[in-house]
Amino acid sequence: MSEMAVHKLSLEPALSALRAAGESTRLRILALLSGRELNVKDLTQILGQSQPRLSRHLKLLSEAGLIERFREGSWVFFRLAEGTPEALLAEAIVAGLDRDDPVLQLDAARATAVQKSRAEAAQNYFKAHAKEWDRIRSLHVAEDQVEQAMIDALGRGPFDLLVDLGTGTGRILELFAGKADRALGFDVSHEMLSYARMKLEGAGLAHAQVRHGDLFHLPLADGEADAVVLHQVLHFLEEPALAIAEASRVLEPGGRLLIVDFAPHELEFLREEQAHRRLGLASEQIGRWCADAGLDLKSHHDLAPAGSGDESKLTVSLWLAEKASVGAAGEKPNSAAKDGAASSVEEAAA
Rank of each mutant, 00 (worst) to 15 (best):
N39F: 05
L218C: 09
A350S: 12
P102G: 05
D42P: 15
L281G: 00
S325L: 05
E63Q: 15
R26F: 08
P102N: 07
L218G: 02
W289R: 04
E191R: 15
I286N: 01
K323Y: 06
K323I: 09
R137N: 02
L205A: 13
A324Y: 01
L258V: 10
E120H: 12
H57P: 03
V210G: 12
D222M: 04
A208I: 14
L38Y: 04
P240V: 03
L175A: 07
F216Q: 10
W133C: 00
L30V: 12
L88D: 07
L11P: 10
A87D: 03
P158Y: 04
K338A: 10
E72A: 14
K8T: 09
V163H: 05
K131C: 04
W133K: 01
A14M: 11
F262K: 01
L104R: 11
G185A: 07
Q51W: 10
A149G: 08
G168C: 09
L220M: 08
S34C: 13
F216G: 11
L257I: 08
L303H: 05
L267N: 06
W75D: 11
E284K: 07
C290Q: 08
P264S: 06
W289L: 06
L9C: 09
M198W: 15
L258G: 08
I29D: 03
A92H: 12
I29C: 14
A247V: 07
L205Q: 13
S248P: 08
L54H: 07
E3T: 14
R53P: 02
P333G: 02
V146N: 01
A282Q: 09
L54P: 06
A245K: 08
S325I: 03
V114K: 00
E147N: 14
A17M: 07
E23G: 13
Q49M: 15
E284F: 12
P253D: 01
F176T: 02
G168D: 05
F262C: 06
L162N: 09
L15A: 11
A122Y: 02
S248G: 14
A64H: 01
V146F: 03
G157S: 05
H140T: 03
V345F: 00
R71H: 11
T44V: 15
E23H: 15
R288W: 08
D292P: 00
E120A: 15
G83C: 08
L242R: 03
V233N: 01
R79N: 11
P102S: 08
L18I: 12
A324R: 14
G48I: 08
S10A: 13
L165D: 03
E82G: 11
A128D: 08
G309L: 06
M1A: 12
R110D: 05
D152M: 00
L173V: 13
D160Q: 13
K323G: 05
A227F: 11
G330E: 04
L139R: 03
Q105H: 07
A328W: 09
V210M: 11
A341Q: 04
G35N: 12
H265N: 13
A208S: 15
E252T: 15
P13K: 01
L251M: 03
D261M: 03
